[in-house]
């Protein structure tokens, strides 16, 4: 557990006045508040540190203890143990809402001050919904090709989810009421699950369309033929037209990825033909090509 210099966190010196602390805290809170910095984990982390520093430095009792024992927090723990009996008799301090998961304090804070009291301590008590939880679920592309059920564990709670086919990488879904418990009797928060889709196939996905480059032999490109092509739901037989050029694109309708929450609807599979020019020839093949050359081909 590392010592945290709360003065440094707020950009203050040890002799900062109460008004300096308040002013500086407000300034930094406005800059790093999670509601003003959506999807910014760094800002959220910084906000938590600022919040924790303010929690200690704006409370004269806590500040005194921090100034006295801060650098020797292990001794402060002993100090706490000695006072624990007295403290248990006192009624607990009010817990006020912090918003957006900002109330989890560092181990250093917990060691020095025990249970957390939350952001904005000392102000009016507020009844509010619990904090929202965020979780990441890693799935493969073939997993999300079909609708399936999955059980995930969040904060020791098992949640059975139906994951619809066609979920996108980075897509977030909300599971109502599976967040943190409500504060002062408020409703629970929600659980937000963000999907991280790992592509375990040879296809490239863009929305509902799939892309793939396939190689076709030179003779098939020139003379035409049929080939078997892999799709995500099996092989399909494909006719190659005689005289197919390199980089020819073919669209296989309905052979792409399922459309999210639109059962039975699929995107397309777009194939890019790459004509395979042979680099090594047998003697016989070489003679045949020479014979072709003589025909001015």
């Amino acid at each position: 557990m590392e010592f945290i210099d709360y003065y440094k966190v707020l950009g203050l010196t040890k002799n900062a006045s109460v008004s300096d602390i308040k002013k500086q805290y407000r300034k930094l809170a406005r800059k790093y508040h999670p509601d003003l910095n959506p999807n910014d984990a760094e800002a959220e982390k910084k906000f938590k540190q600022i919040n924790e520093a303010n929690e200690v430095l704006s409370d004269p009792e806590k500040r005194k203890k921090y100034d006295q024992y801060g650098k020797d927090w292990q001794q402060a723990e002993e100090f706490e143990k000695a006072r624990s009996a007295r403290r248990r008799q006192r009624s607990s301090e009010g817990y006020t809402y912090s918003g957006g998961g900002t109330a989890d304090f560092s181990d250093f804070f917990e060691a020095m001050f025990g249970g957390q009291t939350g952001f904005g301590s000392g102000r009016q008590q507020v009844q509010f919904r619990g904090q929202d939880y965020n979780a990441k679920l890693r799935l493969s592309l073939t997993d999300v090709y079909t609708t399936h059920k999955r059980t995930i564990t969040v904060n020791d709670k098992n949640i059975r989810l139906t994951i619809p086919a066609g979920v996108e990488d980075g897509q977030t879904i909300k599971i109502k009421g599976y967040g943190g418990p409500g504060i002062q009797g408020g409703p629970p928060g929600d659980l937000y699950i963000t999907f991280s889709i790992v592509n375990n196939t040879a296809f490239k996905r863009d929305g509902v369309n799939l892309y793939k480059t396939i190689q076709i032999p030179l003779t098939k490109a020139v003379l035409g033929d049929t080939v078997f092509v892999d799709t995500l739901n099996g092989k399909v037989k494909l006719k190659i037209q005689a005289g197919t050029k390199n980089s020819t694109r073919v669209r296989l309708k309905g052979k792409g990825f399922p459309k999210y929450k639109k059962e039975g609807e699929f995107g397309d599979l777009l194939l890019n033909y790459e004509v395979d020019i042979p680099t090594t020839l047998t003697e016989e093949q070489k003679q045949l090509f020479e014979a072709l050359r003589k025909t001015n081909l």
Partner: peptide
């Protein structure tokens, strides 16, 4: 609404 309440209360 909750976000606006937080911004109003937390940041004045």
């Amino acid at each position: 609404l909750e976000k606006m309440v937080r911004l109003n209360r937390d940041l004045n």
